[in-house]
């Protein structure tokens, strides 16, 4: 059984490499032999461009610094969303009165996509950093609140009963039962929220910015530079992947009790 599992794992890796190489070959062939070459650069040109821009500036900054600028915005906005969203969600999940107060307003605002706040944010806070933090926060907060709420309201009542029988007071039940029991759900929300933030920063930078990963692809569009757009997209994808893995790593550390047989 175990051996078979390992085999299938190597198989997955092999197929992954094969399809990556296959994609590059098909891409290269399509660019070399079809009319696609008019609109699409070869993959090696794009990879070369990424390599080059590690040291050469695009619009005043090298690529890593652009990414760093985007990341800084994400962290401020995302952090805000976490410190507002998690307590609010838990409040909704734990207290019926809190839920009655917060939920209807939340439900009114929830259907408005985070990116639809961009024009209003620019009008309110100008085109500077504040409006970007606001948009990122608004985009991330919905799933953070929803998941914290779900986590706190779906705590197994047998566990609460068991804790009460062992002498836990309401405050202790909140601290030692409700909070730890919601952690996996909260992390699910943090994960979705993080990818929403990353998307929001790209969108916000595409609309108004003079640096960042989103700025790279829009300026690429404006100057008709497909290489720059593709290089930007690849970097955005890689960083998004990296952020998600990072959070998963933190979750593993914090919720080892929830992961079966490792």
């Amino acid at each position: 059984m175990k051996k078979k599992f390992q085999n299938s794992k190597t198989e997955t890796v092999v197929y992954f490499i094969c399809s990556l190489v296959g994609l590059l070959i098909v891409w290269q062939l399509a660019v070399s032999f079809t009319s696609l070459q008019k609109v699409m650069p070869s993959p090696f040109v794009v990879l070369g461009f990424i390599g080059q821009s590690l040291t050469q500036k695009i619009g005043g900054k090298i690529l890593p610094l652009h990414i760093l600028a985007s990341l800084k915005r994400v962290f401020v906005g995302y952090f805000l969303a976490c410190i507002i969203g998690i307590p609010l969600g838990i409040l909704m999940g734990c207290s019926k009165t809190g839920k009655a107060i917060v939920k209807p307003i939340f439900e009114l605002l929830r259907p408005i996509p985070g990116l639809a706040w961009i024009p209003l944010a620019i009008l309110w806070f100008g085109i500077g950093e504040t409006s970007k933090y606001f948009i990122i926060c608004v985009s991330a907060i919905v799933s953070i609140i929803l998941n914290a709420y779900a986590g706190a309201s779906q705590v197994d009542q047998t566990l609460v009963g068991a804790a009460r029988m062992l002498g836990a007071k309401p405050a202790q039940i909140f601290l030692y039962i409700t909070l730890p029991a919601s952690v996996p759900q909260i992390f699910a929300g943090l994960q979705v929220g993080l990818s929403s933030s990353w998307m929001a920063v790209i969108a916000a930078e595409m609309i108004r910015a003079n640096e960042g990963a989103g700025w790279i692809i829009t300026t690429g569009m404006e100057s008709g530079n497909t290489v720059q757009i593709l290089a930007g997209m690849i970097s955005i994808g890689l960083v998004g992947l990296l952020l998600a893995s990072l959070l998963r790593l933190i979750e593993r550390g914090l919720c080892s009790w929830n992961i079966q047989g490792r």
Partner: peptide, 29 residues
């Protein structure tokens, strides 16, 4: 009340606590 202890069919152990943490939960409270 702590003078009455319950053992449940589905154990109702706190999954985020170790064996030690579970057993010591009452005294901690």
């Amino acid at each position: 009340a702590p003078e009455r202890g319950v053992v449940y069919q589905k154990t109702a152990l706190f999954p985020w606590l170790t064996v030690e943490g579970n057993v010591g939960f009452g005294p901690k409270m």
